[in-house]
Simulated scan of single mutants.
Amino acid sequence: MTGTVTLLPSNASALERAVAAADARISTTPTPLRDVWNPITCPANLLPWLAFAYAVDEWDETWTTETKRQVISQALEVKRTKGTPGGVQSALAAVGLPARVQEWFQQAPFGAPYTFRVHVEAEQVGFSAAQIAQLRRVVHQYKNTRSHLDGVDITVRTTGGPRPASVALAGVEARVSDGTPTYEDGLSALDFLVDGAVNGYATTADAADQMQTILREMPAKLTIPSDL
């Protein structure tokens, strides 16, 4: 304790002098109490103790540091709404499981009275069995005693979308015919071929010529009675 002002008597013991030396440096010892009690600034190795102080119900050492800080930060708000659908949703969101609670009277058709379902939307990677088990634990911890979980609906959402593209093509259009006769509108004249095969091609051709002649001359010969 050379160079240190002390009030100890000259016959002080070694223990007393050691305590006095430690107390002399107490003012230089950092005491970040505000930082320790703040979930955002608390050292990572002290987060489990802070979670115990905040009475966090669900804790997992495998969580990331960011998730641990989020769970502690929302602990008081979740406690205020515990036993309500909003409380269940907040508790699930705090552990990284955003969900929507739908009670029995909000379902179509109605579910069994005093039951509810949990709808969870997952990314395209989905959920693991451990996460589903954690979801059920959180739900049972934060739901009210009257209500019962009827089921969990998981929707997998993909972030992929359509990719627009364009292709430039150049070519020549070719029309191939098998030699079948066609009408003026391009339709195949298979009915005349069948008729010719049955009745003879000469007879069929004569009948077609006669019909064409009748149709061509019909407007000139058509007379409408004056009494109509």
Rank of each mutant, 00 (worst) to 15 (best):
Ala112Arg: 14
Thr159Gln: 14
Thr4Asn: 08
Thr65Arg: 03
Ile224Cys: 02
Phe192Glu: 14
Lys68Pro: 01
Ala208Phe: 03
Thr180Val: 10
Pro43Thr: 08
Val5Lys: 09
Gln212Asp: 13
Ala22Trp: 10
Ala53Asp: 15
Asn45Gln: 11
Ala53Asn: 11
Gly196Ala: 04
Thr115Val: 03
Ala108Met: 10
Pro109Met: 06
Gly151Val: 03
Ala205Ile: 13
Ala93Pro: 03
Gly161Arg: 12
Leu8Lys: 07
Ile40Val: 12
Ala22Gln: 12
Val19Ile: 12
Pro98Val: 02
Thr6Phe: 08
Ser27Arg: 11
Asn144Ala: 04
Thr213Tyr: 09
Tyr201Leu: 13
Thr145Asn: 10
Val19Gly: 05
Val56Met: 07
Lys82Ala: 15
Leu169Cys: 05
Ile40Pro: 01
Phe127Ala: 04
Val198Glu: 15
Lys79Val: 00
Pro109Glu: 14
Phe110Pro: 07
Ser27Glu: 14
Ala202Met: 06
Arg100Cys: 02
Val198Gly: 02
Trp104Gly: 05
Ile214Lys: 07
Val152Gly: 01
Val95Lys: 03
Phe116Thr: 04
Gly126Ile: 02
Leu193Val: 14
Ala22Gly: 14
Glu103Leu: 11
Val152Met: 01
Val125Ala: 10
Gln106Tyr: 05
Gly111Asp: 10
Ile72Trp: 07
Ile72Leu: 03
Ile72Tyr: 03
Ala20Asn: 14
Leu46Trp: 11
Leu7Tyr: 08
Asp195Ile: 00
Arg157Lys: 15
Arg216Gln: 13
Ala94Met: 05
Thr180Lys: 11
Arg157Trp: 01
Leu149Ile: 00
Ala91Glu: 05
Ile72Asn: 06
Thr204Trp: 06
Thr31Ile: 07
Arg136Glu: 15
Ile40Ser: 12
Pro32Thr: 01
Thr159Glu: 11
Val5Gln: 12
Leu190Val: 10
Gly186Lys: 05
Met218Val: 09
Tyr142Met: 01
Arg34Ser: 15
Ala189Glu: 09
His140Val: 06
Arg117His: 10
Arg17Tyr: 03
Asp185Glu: 05
Val78Leu: 01
Ser177Tyr: 11
Ala20Ile: 03
Leu187Met: 10
Ala133Met: 14
Glu66Phe: 00
Ala129Asp: 15
Arg80Cys: 01
Asn11Lys: 04
Asn45Trp: 14
Thr182Glu: 13
Ser226Gly: 10
Tyr142Thr: 04
Ala108Cys: 06
Thr62Glu: 14
Pro30Cys: 01
Asp35Ile: 00
Thr182Asn: 02
Leu187Tyr: 10
Arg80Tyr: 05
Glu77Tyr: 01
Ala14Phe: 04
Trp104His: 10
Ile224Gln: 12
